[in-house]
Amino acid sequence: MIQFTNISKSFDEVKAVRNVSLSIDEGQLFGFIGPDGAGKTTLFRMLNSLLIADEGSIELFGLDPHKDYKKVRQIIGYMPGKFSLYYDLSIEENLNFFATVFGTTIEENYHLIEDIYKQIEPFKKRHAGKLSGGMKQKLALCCALIHKPKLLLLDEPTTGVDAVSRREFWDMLKSLKSKGITIVVSTPYMDEAGMCDSVALMQNGQIHAVESPKAIVDNFQKELLAVKCNDMYKALLTLRNYENCYNVYPFGEYLHYIDKRDSKPIEDINDCLLKHDLQEIEINPVKPDIEDCFIELTRKLSV
């Protein structure tokens, strides 16, 4: 189990992490979800002992990352945010290097990386700098896994990677999870929350919620309406000025609209839009997703 208790960390004036407490069960696929600057990286670096918390304590499988940093570092497989492999070394050389550094060999733990490594093995003589984004990611994952860590710590592994590679990457994580490795991932992409067993929504160094993605969505109290018409920008401005509007924002091909009142105001909104010469109006109640929840939680905090 991983336990954060009242963790805070500042850099000069900037409070990167503010009083964070949460726990992560062993064997979970856990996601920290939040935009740049939310404090995810700082939290990760405190967990892997590269930074020391100003306040609070962290426990990682019974170890204290501060005091037992040598042991902690042995059991963590860490992939920092930036692509941290050596561009001028080949796939094989990178992997060999990390294996030797961690006191193991590729053969010893091959079973762990086999599924992933097989996909890049045909190019093993190619320099890492010449790989595509998806391939780099796979290689980095292999390097982080090569010493059979108990905890895999991945800091924004999918940032800047295209949708296909992202999907593949999450599939790989799921299969690793089934091998008993605890995985902690951070990501700025809200849509990836659904892939995790449990997520922490983070912003400005604070945690909005820690729950399963389903529970987060279920906790969304308000009625959400999806609105569509012929001129979305005009509709957005119109609804924003509508007296009963609580919040309205673009959401994919729709606008997501929340009313101040509890009743379902579909008729009212339809009238309002019609009054402003909008056509082809389509209004449906929808289920919120993580992003709606994030927006709502942020809004609650800032009000």
Binding site: P35, D36, Y233, L236, P250, I295, T298
Partner: peptide, 24 residues
């Protein structure tokens, strides 16, 4: 070119509203 990478959902939407306005 990928103007909204890493930006939070609310700011991302504000950004898109700016895009809408410019297009308008």
């Amino acid at each position: 070119d990928e103007p909204t990478g890493g930006v939070d959902p609310i700011t991302r939407r504000q950004f898109w509203e700016m895009i809408y306005e410019a297009a308008d």
